[in-house]
Nucleic acid binder design. Structure first.
Lengths: 245, 245
DNA sequence: CGGTCACTTGATCGTCTTCAATACCAGTGG
DNA sequence: CCACTGGTATTGAAGACGATCAAGTGACCG
């Protein structure tokens, strides 16, 4: 018998540390639908992985063998046109579940912006697990429903809002990122580049840059550094964004 | 005792005709996750309703008390900006389930294009029912996942495609409407107006009209009547649409 | 036959894109 | 310490695509 580490109370039956029990993303993730006592089963099929910034960990069109659950860092999801035009469909952080599509290939690509850590689940294994934990399936449905609402909001932005309105909406969204519902930060930093913002808002980097400058000159925001934003006039921004809920 | 109607074999225990057993939308709807023997419970909480074209049956921002399941006709889903700009997020037909949002108010409005028939379910009642039929919850998750994929495709369209490409994508989508996966019709009719198409594609009616004329003059399509389209060159359209899966 | 409504077509305009130059910043090596 | 480099962001000028404004067409209907 090999030497045991300390803290045997968080060892699972196989003698390894249970990563799920101590996972900092659990409170904000679908995993919280699984009781502590059953957490070992989830941990048993989770493969924790880390990626460097700029690294792609999901490729549109490839066979969809895995589900993913982000536990740290930020990634961008995007779709490409044959000629290289790109649409970023979302920025995802800790707690976000990926790969829900029913199709047998991924419908989008995912690339790490910051260093990203995630759990990878083999689809077939997770599906079996879900059969035993209907509560988690319920949570997934909730999550999917919320994402659908967000997607519709983004369609409104892309189809009908001006560049100014898009930037205002985007900045407000970022200021609420990770905050409890109804709250926001006045000061926050953007982990993504201007190019990412442009491809998320259906604009060019030049228009993003120009519009940010304009918003700054009007006193609505402050651009402390390239990545650092301060919202000077939240209600003004909200007015511009046009009733983003 | 009151007089009985004929066809007693499709009477449910309460003596009313079971609408679900004979529903023509059932094969294409989430209801097919419920076994024939349990169908009475679903029918018991379904309120069948019909709406005239142009009538709104879901209003964005109103308390979300009901789920809906379209059984006939076509409706448009849309969001509005305070100044009246509109983005149509989808056209939905028989089998489509509405109201999945977790929020306590609707995130979009729905208006009948053709005469629409749907089942209305009180949210609380359907939620209780779902607890007893996890298979239906599974189906809902599948449906939501598929809609999410479609929404991302639409974001790509709205954010990065030109007017020509948007029309091409839209026409291909319509030509596949209601067809088994991988199939499409060469000839089909559009139930919606140019204004609806414009608000779905993030364009104006003038641009939609002009672009259709252009596609016709190039021999890609034929516009038989205002509502009737024939695809003359499917692969040409697909090339334009740019890899719509 | 006049009215309405949806659609089409034309002319002009404006927002955002494209192309191009410049600024900024961190890292590297002389 | 300072030039050099590569990547990212900003700013400027010109151009294009789609929007806006406006007029005309055709179908349907009372």
């Amino acid at each position: 018998m090999s030497a045991q580490l300390a803290r045997p109370h968080i060892l699972d039956p196989h003698g390894a540390l249970d990563p799920c029990a101590t996972c900092e993303a659990r409170p904000v993730s679908v995993c919280n639908a699984i009781a502590d006592t059953d957490l070992g089963r989830l941990a048993a099929i989770a493969v924790v992985t880390e990626t460097e910034p700029g690294q792609c960990f999901i490729d549109e069109g490839e066979p969809a063998n895995s589900f993913f659950n982000i536990t740290a860092g930020t990634a961008k999801l995007f779709k490409l046109l044959p000629d290289g035009r790109r649409q970023i469909t979302g920025f995802v952080g800790a707690g976000h579940f990926l790969g829900l599509a029913v199709s047998d290939t991924y419908a989008f690509s995912a690339e790490a912006i910051e260093r990203v850590r995630f759990c990878r689940f083999q689809r077939s294994k997770l599906r079996m697990l879900l059969d035993d934990f209907p509560l988690m399936e319920k949570r997934l449905l909730e999550v999917a429903a919320n994402e659908l609402v967000a997607a519709q909001e983004q369609m409104l932005l892309l189809g009908r809002k001006t560049a100014r309105e898009r930037l205002a909406s985007f900045l407000l969204l970022q200021s609420r990122q990770g905050m409890p519902c109804g709250h926001s930060r006045r000061r926050f930093s953007l982990p993504m580049t201007r190019s990412d913002i442009a491809d998320y808002l259906g604009l060019t980097i030049e228009t993003v840059s120009r519009t940010l400058t304009k918003l700054r000159s009007e006193g609505l925001i402050d651009v402390v550094s390239q990545a650092e934003i301060i919202v000077r006039n939240p209600s003004g921004l909200e007015g511009l964004a046009g009733g983003l809920c």
